[in-house]
Design a binder for these strands. Sequence first.
DNA 1: CCTCCTGTTACTACCTGGTTATAATTGAAC
DNA 2: GTTCAATTATAACCAGGTAGTAACAGGAGG
Lengths: 190, 190
Amino acid sequence: MVNQRRKRRDQLQYILEQDPFLTDDQLAALFGVSVATIRLDRMALGIPELRERTKEMAATVHSKLRSMHGMEVIGELVQLDLGQYGISILPVSDALVFERTRILRGHHLFAQGNSLAAALVNSPRALTARAEVRFERPVYLDQRVVCEAEVEEQQYNRYTIAVNSKVDGETVFSGQFVVADVAGKEESLK
Amino acid sequence: MVNQRRKRRDQLQYILEQDPFLTDDQLAALFGVSVATIRLDRMALGIPELRERTKEMAATVHSKLRSMHGMEVIGELVQLDLGQYGISILPVSDALVFERTRILRGHHLFAQGNSLAAALVNSPRALTARAEVRFERPVYLDQRVVCEAEVEEQQYNRYTIAVNSKVDGETVFSGQFVVADVAGKEESLK
DNA sequence: CCTCCTGTTACTACCTGGTTATAATTGAAC
DNA sequence: GTTCAATTATAACCAGGTAGTAACAGGAGG
């Protein structure tokens, strides 16, 4: 009796995670119980009503897209000495990994390094010109990638930047980025 | 008279694009008109009610996250001869560019090339080992990047793949990726 | 002057997908 | 057979709408 209820509630939770767009009516039909029971179950599980669920999703997505849009640096910038040195940290979420292997897709490591390198160059028009990178070890879901970048050389408007990313002190990615500061150069930008 | 209405409707459209979470009540107060007027305006503009708007957002986001999660290849795969050759196309949306300059962030070009290169290697465990890339020209908002990748060499489990991305026939990005097929190698994957 | 037309407003009935609370029913366990 | 938890039913209420109808205000044209 109680077990049936436990089971139903477990399933309810799972089902709503899979498809949050179900009304109490549909759920009641699905489980073959009354709507009242579904409501009690939802209450017990702390699951808000359909409209609240969708509103929440829409709102978080809204802000997420906003923040992604403004995200100049991939990962969180934790240190930045302009023109010299910087550190950013990227937590490996499940959106960034291969589904099967849970290994971080390589281009995210590149993106972290690239955006940090571009941030080091104190210009609104820093563009990467070349890069040479090595993926030393695979990085897995839920790890934290600490990326370190240092300006090695500057000639005219071209910066050579060494990048080294580590997980738990072990290098997983390294590379050299050449970033050009094209401020005032590209007429087509206007 | 009619102009006031036009103006109000233009503003209404704009405001709801900025913040889709406003009820007719709030909008009426905002414009200093009655709720009925807001409803007529919405009807005329083909804007659905608050709940429909949020539901729509939540749903598209839901599927978007799903598809992003499963997105093994950045860009749309238009041709793929496994182990040999492939083409993918990436439309440059505003989420991918620098806000000020509207130039595509370099790592998206890298990501397109990298994921296409990995797709060429017919293995669920293809990992990029090295890459050497050149960003030849800036790519702008609303352009379409056509990326071509070809396997140049294969030694044991290592593939050397040449990548060339073009916009309107002009090369914007080129590089060489070394991808390793680690199937059956990494015990830690289990 | 009156009339017509447009834009706006007010009012009513109804809908969905809930909430809260209270009471009645079921069923299994002791 | 009683008892107690789980379930169900019932009623009143709410937000944020839709749909439709009627009234009103104000300027343009006759």
